[in-house]
């Protein structure tokens, strides 16, 4: 498999050198190194975490794809698999962990709960999908997705990495290396610092509507 991906398709390698020589360009080499050694962060929140651990265990063995170990520390991880329901109490910790990860970093939303709130979407302590706070690269639906579905999702992430180019990635261009996300805080309900103005306007509107109703009644 290795030689097929690394080799540029327009060049034919003769049979006897197949597997020993590859003609490639810098982009492909760079992406090949990164996609074959993605270390996931051990970030299981709920039931999907069990399928993630089962995908790491004997039968589905994600180590074959290079996801050798699961590191609990964000400094040593490349991809954050958000597996399980994201609750409001936990979101400040998640955003802080994402900020501490070193570039290049990716986020995979595993399961229905992390993609869009899942069956618990209407709860008062549930955030309807982690993409409200973090930029998600791959969504894997299912409740829980079987380990094979998770492995397929990781293969799709690898394909996405293959499309990136070393001259266009954010961390090598001029400007900030990575984008830090403002950490939400827990007030009377969860407050996202990027949306403070919207909350103020909507709350003011509600106040005027209420006083109008009370005045009419």
């Amino acid at each position: 498999m290795m030689e097929n991906e690394l080799n540029l398709p327009e060049f034919n390698i003769p049979e006897e050198l197949d597997g020993k020589v590859a003609i490639t360009n810098l982009d492909r080499l760079y992406n090949f190194g990164r996609r074959s050694s993605l270390w996931p962060m051990m970030f299981g929140l709920a039931c999907c975490a069990i399928e993630m651990i089962a995908a790491q265990a004997g039968r589905y063995d994600m180590a074959r794809f290079g996801m050798e170990v699961m590191r609990p520390s964000p400094r040593q991880a490349d991809v954050m698999i958000v597996a399980g329901t994201v609750t409001k109490k936990m979101v400040p910790a998640i955003v802080r962990l994402y900020n501490q990860m070193a570039e290049p970093k990716y986020v995979v939303a595993m399961g229905a709960c992390a993609s869009g709130g899942g069956p618990f979407k209407e709860g008062y302590n549930v955030v309807a999908g982690i993409d409200k706070f973090l930029p998600v690269d791959v969504y894997i639906p299912g409740c829980p997705p079987t380990p094979q579905a998770l492995v397929k999702g990781m293969i799709r992430l690898q394909e996405k990495i293959d499309q990136q180019s070393i001259s266009k990635v954010r961390w090598y261009k001029k400007g900030a290396d990575s984008v830090e996300i403002a950490i939400p805080f827990l007030g009377p309900d969860l407050i996202d610092p990027r949306r403070i103005q919207d909350i103020k306007e909507a709350a003011n509107e509600l106040a005027t509507v209420n006083t109008a109703e009370e005045g009419a009644a």
């Binding site: 993609s115 869009g116 993409d131 791959v138 969504y139 639906p141 079987t146 999702g153 799709r156 996405k160």
Partner: peptide, 10 residues
């Protein structure tokens, strides 16, 4: 069919 992971919401 469980291979329905994608880059957008489903």
């Amino acid at each position: 069919d469980y291979e329905i992971s994608s880059y957008t919401r489903n």
